[in-house]
Design a protein around this nucleic acid. Structure first.
Lengths: 314, 314
DNA sequence: ATCAGATATAGATATTTATCTATAACTAAC
DNA sequence: GTTAGTTATAGATAAATATCTATATCTGAT
């Protein structure tokens, strides 16, 4: 049997002949001429090296080899049908994988969107990568994921980004801090205190430092800490003061005090970022469409800035 | 997914690329050039309508759709491997069907050959048809079976026949018959008795009657009976005398007496007959080869006339 | 004896396919 | 920064394939 000379078309025709028991009838059904079907069968028999159909008393008779081939074909086409179903699901976004890499701070808000999406499409894998800005940027450079979440998206021509959430920063102090009960403070009032900061390159820190620089201010003392939680807890226990994303602070957390800094309103936005030079999985596209439609529903209208319609998802 | 534009070759190449993880390596293994393999993969992806392999950081990465297709291919090729095994068995004569139609008398001798053959090839189906000469001839005309057993083969150009067994006829009489103890009798001595005969057209009867005619003899009385057993039993019980194939008479059967007719030696031969205008199954060929080699072993050397080497079994 | 319907064969053709060579573009390693 | 090894693309060609039309042959029914 020489598989190289057998095409799926040939097998389709053969199956039809076995089913109808007639070459002419098959020709009619498949919109071919009778000689075409005759020839196909002949070629198939040559490729198999064994008679598959015999003319006996004006009737087509399927040989053992023919019957077995028919069964084989049924199985084979069955597998391809299954595969087609798989592709259909993949295309509909109901199956597949959507790898998302996000910076630390995003982990407080993105799960509110991922949870409902995952419930809607339980067959979609959603592996998450969380790292600091430098790490996520690295992954982005190598194109390791489908979607990236930044608050300062890298400006690369082979990338498209769209913001979806406002990210206001707040100044927090310990409850027993001298400024804790001051109604209105100014940025300069804070310079004398020790600041707890994230590592260099973090979006929050970049924003803060650029503000300081533009106003010619300099911190008197600062300590670097690896995570937002560490900073929050450290502030609560009196180690210093800090500037943190609003989303990192639970509204009912009373272990620190949020200052009302009247002359400074630091804020950035969260962006979904995709590389345009890399294949985007259907699942990823689908997730972004979902986000576009439901971001207000799951993240609340207060902070949402839904510009996801700017993304080209086709 | 458009199966029409997918060939088994394409899938083979794809599988090799997935296995080796490299287009160039596949090209080397399959004795192709690298652009050929590149193009094949590209074409396959177009036919599937989905990326199957991605270049990521200088590494080939198999997508979900690609992995699933790979699994599908494994199944599909598995089925064709099974089918190839089936064909191999079929070709070796170890599997398949060998339909044999034989005239009544042959059923006393052919099973001695069929038994051992069936033990050797338990997967070969051996449907037997037994009928009188007219019935078997009918089947032969319509080509319903692979092999026919006649003692007077039809002479058709689209048939080949070869004899394998001598078929001597014997005259039998009841134990209490006047001739039962006569040492030597002549054919004319028998004419006065009632003969029990098979139906018109039976080889035994044809042979006997043609002998009578050539010697100008006429039976005084005859009765027609449907089977050899019926005749044998009827003779034993005194209804008349008969002429029967030696093979029908068990050597230890003492319920009748075999006459020594000195002036008449009737005999024919058994023939295996095949149509040359019909496909002969491998199993049938194989059985005839087996018969050619083992007929003496299983039917004894006394009556065997092995001329099966005259058959063209290729 | 003719007809209708089946399959088979021959001859023709446009399309598709498999394959090559040459070349470009990228990257890792030396 | 040259080299060696990847994959991708373009252009060319010979072979194979899918079809068709026309025709032959057979058979069963009218």
């Amino acid at each position: 049997m020489d598989l190289r000379h057998i095409s799926f078309r040939l097998l389709e025709v053969f199956m039809s002949v076995v089913k109808t028991g007639s070459i002419s009838e098959t020709a009619r059904r498949l919109h071919l001429t009778q000689p075409t079907v005759s020839l196909q069968i002949k070629r198939l028999q040559e490729a198999v090296g064994e008679p598959l159909l015999l003319m006996q008393q004006q009737k087509l008779h399927v040989t053992d080899a023919g019957l077995e081939l028919f069964k084989t074909c049924q199985q084979v086409f069955g597998h391809f049908d299954d595969y087609q179903d798989f592709l259909t699901e993949l295309n509909g976004g109901a199956r597949g994988r959507c790898k998302i890499a996000m910076v630390n701070t995003a982990q407080y808000i993105l799960p509110k969107l991922l949870g409902p999406y995952s419930n809607l499409h339980p067959h979609v894998e959603l592996p998450l990568e969380i790292g600091n800005r430098a790490e996520v940027l690295d992954r982005f450079e190598r194109g390791e994921d489908d979607i990236y979440v930044f608050s300062h998206p890298p400006s690369l021509e082979s990338a498209q980004a769209a913001r979806f959430l406002h990210n206001p920063l707040e100044f927090i102090v310990p409850l027993n801090h001298p400024l804790a009960h001051v109604k209105a403070v100014k940025l300069t009032d804070l310079m004398q205190y020790r600041f707890l900061l994230r590592e260099n390159g973090s979006a929050t820190r970049m924003l803060f430092e650029s503000e300081l620089q533009s106003r010619g201010l300099v911190l008197s003392d600062s300590v670097q800490m690896a995570s937002n939680e560490a900073i929050r807890v450290a502030v609560a226990s009196g180690m210093g003061i800090a500037v943190l994303s609003r989303h990192v602070l639970a509204t009912d957390d009373t272990s620190f005090k949020i200052l009302n800094v009247t002359d400074t309103h630091l804020a950035s936005h969260w962006y979904f970022v995709m590389r345009t030079d890399r294949h985007i999985s259907h699942a990823a596209r689908n997730f972004l469409k979902f986000a576009q439609q439901h971001v207000e529903q799951y993240l609340g209208t207060q902070w949402v800035r839904n510009e996801l319609h700017n993304l080209d998802l086709n």
